[in-house]
Amino acid sequence: MPATRTVAIIDDDRHLRESIQDLLETAGLSSLLFPSADAFLHERGYEDVNCILSDVKMPGTSGIELIDILGEMGGCPPVLIMTSYADKQTKATALNKGAVAFLPKPLDSDEVLRCLETAVRGT
């Protein structure tokens, strides 16, 4: 099992992706960046990561739709959802679909790292 854990960061905001990548690097995690769930699926990003951190609302496939797609594939890494749309319905839907965490934006760095640590520990 590799010592370095890799997280897929999926968000249509390039600056946010890069900021999260910087945060993860300081915590000893590597990351792969994807501008959309469709790019992540097309590039088969799920094969190379221990965990997925995905936005909900993006052009094309949403983060919640991504959970459904990955669930149908089976054996995919845990998914954490981040969103600016942190209403109760979105949170309930994401968690009911199988997200292991729901993180409202703006992100709390400590909370992101705690949730990722818990998620990658199980992979």
Rank of each mutant, 00 (worst) to 15 (best):
P104S: 05
L80S: 09
V56S: 00
P35H: 07
A37D: 08
L24C: 08
S109D: 10
R114S: 04
A86G: 15
Y85C: 06
E111M: 00
E43I: 00
E72I: 05
L113T: 01
Y85E: 03
L24G: 09
K88S: 15
V7L: 08
F34A: 06
M73Y: 11
G60Y: 03
P35C: 03
N96L: 08
T93E: 09
L80T: 05
F34L: 06
D48K: 13
A39R: 10
H42Q: 13
A86S: 15
Y46K: 08
T26W: 12
P104Y: 05
H42C: 13
D68W: 07
I9Y: 02
K105Q: 03
L23P: 05
A119H: 12
F40P: 06
I20F: 03
L29W: 04
E117N: 15
D12W: 02
E47P: 09
K91C: 07
A94L: 03
P59K: 00
L70R: 14
I67S: 01
G71S: 10
D22G: 12
C76K: 15
A27D: 14
C76G: 08
D11E: 06
T26E: 14
L103C: 03
A99D: 07
G122Y: 11
E47R: 14
T6E: 05
T90Y: 12
I10T: 11
G75Y: 03
V120T: 15
G71E: 08
D12K: 03
V7I: 12
E47I: 01
R121D: 09
V49F: 11
C76W: 10
D13C: 04
M58L: 05
S30P: 06
R17T: 05
V79N: 02
K57F: 02
L33Y: 12
C76E: 04
A94W: 11
F102K: 11
T123C: 12
E117W: 13
T90Q: 13
S109E: 04
A92K: 14
L16I: 11
S62N: 02
V7S: 04
R44H: 14
I52W: 10
L116G: 11
M58G: 00
G75W: 03
L41G: 07
S30Y: 03
T93N: 06
T93I: 11
V79G: 06
